[in-house]
């Protein structure tokens, strides 16, 4: 098992008012099987022992599914590995002596709370605006009453699997939330269950996205490239199509 020395440049910011700065750290004995976040845990253990404040970063499941983690590594959201959330990234992707720059996802709609932790509540508000099928508990019909073709169900699933991490926003030159919003709209609008509220949902969610201060989509497709679950930009096309249909 080989170990490495890694140099780190990490964004430190006390709170939303602090301008923030990069701080340099060096970490020896980094094991290649460590996950990236475990490497940061080890750094923090060292910092705590030295009496310095540890680096704050968000995580929970560490399995690539909760969408809590969202670091930008060497300029790329979630780091170098395709379709991999940063909690699933392992140090074997790096070499001895590498310098790694770690920043929070930057966007006007995602203000920094501390260090690498940001406020993504704008995403909740986009869902709140219409990202659901209105069905009261207990009012649902028998599940097999409405058959859904397997292909349709698969497509809906592919959109529904968005983990809400916000990497798409961080990667977009315009800080657009179109991939996130498009994924939820495309998920629900593609299913028979989603039809009755289709127009209302699309308009409400798109409007909310704008209201939150996310930028427009100019088809850079940077979002798709960093999305850890491979949400397709076809969802954005679906969203636009449905939006146009809905307003006319």
């Amino acid at each position: 098992m080989s170990t490495m020395t890694i140099k780190l440049k990490i964004w430190r910011q006390k709170n939303s008012h602090d301008p923030g700065h990069f701080e340099d750290y060096k970490l020896d004995d980094v094991n290649e099987h460590m996950s990236f976040l475990e490497m940061l845990d080890v750094l923090n253990e060292n910092l705590i022992k030295e009496g310095t404040d540890p680096v704050e970063f968000d995580y929970d499941c560490r399995e690539g599914i909760c969408g809590s983690c969202n670091l930008v590594i060497n300029g790329r959201a979630h780091g170098p590995k395709h379709m991999t959330a940063v909690c699933q990234l392992h140090m074997r992707e790096y070499n001895n002596g590498d310098t790694i720059v770690i920043e929070p996802p930057r966007a006007a709609a995602f203000p920094v709370i501390k260090d690498l932790v940001v406020d993504r509540s704008a995403f909740d508000r986009i869902i709140e605006a219409g990202g659901y099928v209105s069905v009261k508990t207990g009012a649902a019909p028998e599940a097999n009453l409405i058959p859904v073709p397997q292909d349709t169900s698969n497509i809906a699933f592919d959109y529904a699997t968005c983990i809400g991490c916000g990497a798409c926003v961080a990667a977009c030159p315009n800080s657009s939330a179109s991939l996130f919003t498009g994924a939820k709209i495309a998920h629900l609008n593609s299913l028979p269950q989603g039809q009755p509220e289709r127009d209302k949902r699309t308009i409400a969610m798109v409007n909310q996205m704008e209201k939150e201060g996310f930028g427009d989509c100019s088809n850079f497709a940077e979002c798709e490239a960093v999305c850890p679950v491979g949400i397709s930009i076809a969802s954005i096309a679906e969203m636009r199509k449905d939006y146009v249909k809905a307003i006319f």
């Binding site: 659901y132 099928v133 069905v135 508990t137 207990g138 009012a139 649902a140 019909p141 028998e142 599940a143 409405i146 058959p147 859904v148 073709p149 397997q150 169900s153 698969n154 809906a156 699933f157 529904a160 998920h187 629900l188 299913l191 269950q193 989603g194």
Partner: peptide, 13 residues
Amino acid sequence: IDQAVAQGVPFGR
């Protein structure tokens, strides 16, 4: 299962 399907949960089919 009825409730989840009505909400648009994409179960395997």
